[in-house]
């Protein structure tokens, strides 16, 4: 296993011809980097543009309102993603139907249900979630932009689809990794598959599922900010604009706002996780 990884690494390394010298930057580039870094401690509080048109909102207002848009896109994408993750996660976990003997000795619909329908649903949902996951949100954004133009729906879908796939995969794994004995016990007392899933399997996985969802929300905030590069009015849009007008102080302001949001979420998810701990 480790050997395989090492071989893969060496192969990729030589194939790409990675060499330290490649990193030697142009002196101009270094200068930009230096100027940019120099502003880290002095982010702009007001616009740094040479010409500010009449009626332009103040910089801090733009920063906060684009932070709000970033949050909204992330929240909308994430809630749709959660919905997809929960539904697909149910179908792509096996623990609620595997090993049940309902109607095994019949040649009837109930046998077909257990032996054919559930495995097919399982396989189908795994294919779907892998298709959703295997494409990065940025590529989904490009796709939806082409299809729908610069609409909010495009941005939300671009987040929701890959996130939904990832959540479904992780949720189903978390559920399938919990101990199955309590589920079997409820099954033995007549509970249905969906009931054992909801009340024996999910409760055990729930603290992990919640913790992971918070983490993905953090990721969604960053993805949402990045979507600004395509023109959505999130932090990314203003970061790009300020960067290209060389107003590095403004860039830092936006970055700090993003960092602040992520930190708040991190703190919140920590608090929730501590409450759920045994």
């Amino acid at each position: 296993m480790i050997l395989c990884l090492m071989i893969a690494f060496v192969w990729a390394y030589s194939h790409l011809g990675l060499r330290g010298e490649d990193l030697h930057p142009s002196s101009g580039g270094l200068k930009v980097l230096g100027e940019f870094a120099a502003r880290a401690l002095t982010p702009a509080l007001t616009s740094e543009a040479d010409f500010v048109p009449e009626g332009t909102r103040p910089l801090l207002y733009i920063a906060l309102s684009s932070a709000r848009t970033t949050l909204f896109f992330a929240a909308a994408g994430m809630s749709l993603g959660l919905f997809l993750g929960i539904v697909l996660g149910f179908f792509s976990s096996t623990s609620w139907w595997a090993g049940d003997f309902g109607g095994v000795r019949r040649s009837s619909p109930s046998r077909i249900l257990g032996r054919v329908l559930f495995p097919v649903l399982y396989g189908g949902s795994r294919v779907i979630i892998n298709l959703m996951r295997s494409t990065h949100e940025v590529l989904w954004a490009v796709l939806f932009l082409t299809a729908f133009g610069l609409s909010n729906t495009a941005a939300v879908l671009a987040i929701a689809i890959p996130y939904g796939g990832t959540l479904a995969k992780i949720f189903s794994e978390m559920v399938d990794e919990t101990t199955r004995e309590p589920a079997h016990a409820l099954r033995g007392a007549g509970a249905s598959g969906l009931q054992t899933y909801s009340f024996a399997l999910v409760p055990q996985a729930l603290p992990d599922m919640i913790g992971y969802s918070f983490y993905r929300f953090e990721c969604a905030l960053r993805s949402s900010a990045i979507l600004g590069f395509f023109g959505f009015p999130t932090l990314g849009l203003f970061i790009r604009q300020s960067f290209s007008s060389l107003n590095y102080g403004e860039v830092w302001t936006f970055l700090y706002v993003l960092l602040g949001m992520v930190l708040i979420f991190d703190w919140w998810s920590g608090a929730v996780r501590r409450r759920l701990a045994p």
Binding site: G102, G103, R187, G188, A189, G190
Partner: peptide, 17 residues
């Protein structure tokens, strides 16, 4: 083991383990 799923559920519901 020849009961349908629904009937099996009903029988199981009457058995405490």
């Amino acid at each position: 083991y020849t009961l349908s799923r629904t009937d099996l559920r009903r029988v199981r519901a009457s058995i405490g383990f």
